[in-house]
Design a binder for these strands. Structure first.
Lengths: 225, 225
DNA sequence: ATTTTGTGTTAAACAGTGTTAACGCCGGAT
DNA sequence: ATCCGGCGTTAACACTGTTTAACACAAAAT
């Protein structure tokens, strides 16, 4: 049938989930922490990954980032503790990811696994890369932002950032995610750089009052459009 | 909610899909071939089109071309049987937004419909989060609370808290629930933080005496509105 | 009645962010 | 080689949101 990589540091829970999945015909490989999970992922190329978020050595989100380097498509389902702030999780809902709040029922997990398995891979919907943000027209490849007749040419980094904000519009886009993605590392100074870019984007976007970039302190930014 | 135009020549399948969509709250119009579909499109201006590719009279791709003449934006989801890659590419070239291989699961169709509805095209996007609290108008995504002409911009956390109070209005919202959800853990200091936020929300809401946030000692808060 | 616990409120402290401007690097033009 | 302009970074200072502390008070427990 399908192979599933399960990563869960609570062994008791991990065993139960593994057995339940195997009873339903899945082939399961099981790891107890992120590092082992990453190794097993590379060894086995599973069809779906189910990973706890809070784990020793390598947490679920970091693990996901490493997995995405190898494979941008494999579906990842996060298991989050009840005590996980809702915001942190939201950014990961898109892009082949799903999440489940503990405690969850096995049925819920099965449903999600099946839903993700059924999806045929090229899930990228055809984007002509011409996006609409409020009254603005944003051409990502040409890096142009236009309102009425007026057209601004954005720098590459400005365009990349705006695109990511757009892809997460009306949700929180995490600082650390952008920093790792665009800058390659999440450090204090790069963080300040990001702030400067946000200021510039706000300036570009200020002519439509319905478009706003809101800050979520300690987490990231939210583009309202 | 949203209206969907479904075009599928296999009537048995069409009925099933239509019912499933209606159960989930969509308004569905149903056509059995491309010509009828085009007519219904012009008559009803649906938010999303779901069309089979292989149909008598007017196939899905040709239908899409005709629809695009009227409306360059409306999302179109193609249902393809055993599709060759060539078919898929053709569908994208025409500006269709997505495709789905038969057989598909209803969940997968729903997910895609919702994804396409969320790419808000300025005219057809409905505001999801405009709430009324007493005489106040609360826009959750924009984090704005308005009374008469006056408008306050709330912080993210204030907005999240107010939203949760609203969702439980006239019932008790438990402290520990909010603390776990927004703060990630239920400790003494975070508890005091929550108290401070309640004070602030009370201040924001004090201009309508019919709106109140009551305390239930040891349990939580209750929003009266 | 007295103590203990939970909440209301305010303000100070702190860390995160907003903004502007100056700086330095790099590639293209002179 | 030198100058120049564009771009991203760094620095500096102002400002905002959240937490923490402090004190006052109310409700429950003793």
């Amino acid at each position: 049938m399908a192979t599933i990589l399960l990563i869960e540091d609570e062994v008791a829970l991990g065993m139960i989930v593994r057995d339940s999945l195997e009873v339903r015909g899945f082939t399961v490989t099981y790891a107890v922490d992120g590092e082992e999970g990453l190794a097993l992922f590379r060894a086995n190329k599973p069809d779906v990954v189910v990973a706890d978020v809070m784990m020793p050595k390598l947490d679920g989100f970091s693990l996901a980032e490493r997995i995405r380097e190898d494979d941008p498509y494999v579906p990842i389902i996060f298991l989050t503790a009840r005590s996980q702030p809702a915001d942190v999780v939201k950014g990961f809902e898109l892009g082949g990811n799903d999440y489940l709040k503990k405690p969850f029922s096995m049925d819920e997990l099965i449903v999600r696994i099946k839903a993700l398995l059924n999806r045929n891979h090229p899930l990228r919907s055809a984007d002509p890369e011409k996006l609409t943000i409020g009254k603005y027209h944003f051409d990502y490849t040409k890096q142009k932002l236009a309102l009425n007749g007026h057209e601004e040419l954005l720098s590459h980094r400005e365009a990349e950032l705006l695109k990511r904000l757009y892809e997460h519009r009306n949700q929180v886009l995490e600082r650390s995610l952008v920093l790792l993605d665009l800058w390659g590392d999440d450090s204090f100074f790069n963080g300040r750089s990001l702030d400067v870019f946000i200021t510039r984007l706000r300036r570009y976007l200020r002519d439509d009052p319905n478009v706003q970039i809101l800050n979520v302190r300690g987490v990231g930014y939210k583009l309202i459009a």
